[in-house]
Amino acid sequence: MGPCWLRFNSNLYFLVRMALGCLFIFSGFEKLISPYQNFLFIIESYAILPSWGEEIVARGWPWIEFFLGVFLALGLWLRWTLVAVMGMLFSFVVVVAQALARHLPIDECGCFGDISFPLPVVLVFDIALALIVGFLYLHYEKTVFFSLDEYCARHERQ
């Protein structure tokens, strides 16, 4: 394979990383700008946490989601960010799977504000995203292309 293919390949990793970052930014941002009680209501419907835990998650989770999205899109602390995103997606999978197993009557998945999907779709989507993030982590040297991490490293080398 020549350098042209290598460049295309790296661009693809960059695009996937950006798309994932934007997805998390949108999801977190939408929750942050609307009153936290809307997200609290959705967390409550999953019936997995005590009420004090629901309150903490409703206030804190959107910030984590938003910053992971920003860091992923910019490629900052990328190795750690990829691990954290994978952890977040794994927690989504667990929460959605337990809701499905318990046949909880959940109308809103809490994914992207007003946009909601049936829980089985969400489960498949989250697993797919986790696999993509895992793939990006395994090919870190390509994922880091066009990132602030790469910029900093190059800047220090010069």
């Binding site: 942050l32 860091f71 602390w77 900093c152």
Partner: peptide
């Protein structure tokens, strides 16, 4: 060298966090 890279990344992180929080609060 590694320490310097870490330092510049920390500076960028602080700037990014401040900008992002400002955007969210304004919105």
């Amino acid at each position: 060298m590694v320490a310097m890279s870490r330092q510049s990344r920390l500076t960028i992180t602080i700037v990014v966090v401040i900008c992002a929080v400002t955007i969210v609060l304004i919105a």
